[in-house]
């Protein structure tokens, strides 16, 4: 497992300089605009995108077929990817915090809590995103799975947009029950959101393990 994480880190570290450039760029914008929380969550997303790179690089090298001849089980290969994803999400969150704190001190702003909230939401979104896409990547490979990502994320977006337009056009108010439900969810978001994230992660891991155990190379 340690070897797999080392391999992923060495591979993506070759392009870590991009993050440095982005930190300086967005940091400067935030500093000039006097708004430290503007880009909270951004670095979580950027670092998390490296996860897709690890899959691409493995696929280009045909790494899995080689790795499975080593003293590594199929489960370990899947576990390695989930662990890497969580490490990257956490790293992104930490980087956000460092940038946020630095900018807050420099600009003497008091928006630290807002920034932390956005950064946490960013990390949760990243974990849920990967919980959905990793089983697809495990099954289809990164190249084919990319097509599905578009469908997975475009269809709900288009459907939501369509329904929203229809509701607005019909000029009707949402049912009271729905409004109450949403209010309860928002009120208990600190419990519900982590629970959803953990459930998504668990189900995703279970599915990926099942897929990978059956996979032939």
């Amino acid at each position: 497992m340690k070897g797999l994480i080392t391999k992923d880190f060495i591979n993506i570290s070759k392009s870590f300089w991009v993050i440095g450039v982005l930190v300086i760029f967005y940091g400067a914008i935030s500093f000039v605009s006097d708004s430290p929380s503007s880009f909270s969550g951004l670095f979580t997303l950027i670092i998390a995108m490296y996860m897709l790179s690890t899959y691409s690089l493995d696929e280009m090298a045909k790494w899995d077929i080689y790795a499975l001849t080593m003293p590594l089980t199929r489960d370990k290969l899947v576990q390695g990817k989930y662990l890497m994803m969580l490490i990257l999400s956490f790293m992104g969150f930490l980087l956000n915090m460092v940038v946020l704190l630095t900018l807050n001190i420099l600009t003497k702003s008091e928006s630290l809590f807002d920034g932390i909230e956005i950064a946490v939401v960013g990390a949760v979104l990243v974990i849920v995103f990967y919980s959905i896409v990793i089983p697809f990547i495990t099954n289809l490979g990164i190249v084919k799975a990319r097509l599905y990502f578009i469908i997975i994320y475009m269809v709900p977006f288009m459907a939501g947009s369509f329904i929203s337009k229809r509701i607005k056009a019909s000029n009707t108010n949402p049912p009271d029950g729905l409004i109450t439900f949403i209010e309860v969810v928002i009120k208990n978001a600190y419990i519900i959101v982590p629970l959803i994230m953990i459930a998504a992660l668990g189900i995703s891991y279970f599915i990926s393990i099942r897929i990978y155990r059956k996979k032939e190379f």
């Binding site: 070897g3 060495i10 090298a61 790795a67």
Partner: peptide, 28 residues
């Protein structure tokens, strides 16, 4: 068991030093 395939199956941007580090953490 040592395995050698027709292709190298190693990532293009790695160096032999990198490989030493990776394999050192995989093979006991």
């Amino acid at each position: 068991i040592g395995v050698v395939f027709e292709g190298s199956n190693l990532h293009d941007n790695l160096t032999t030093d990198n490989i030493n580090k990776i394999m050192g953490n995989i093979y006991p």
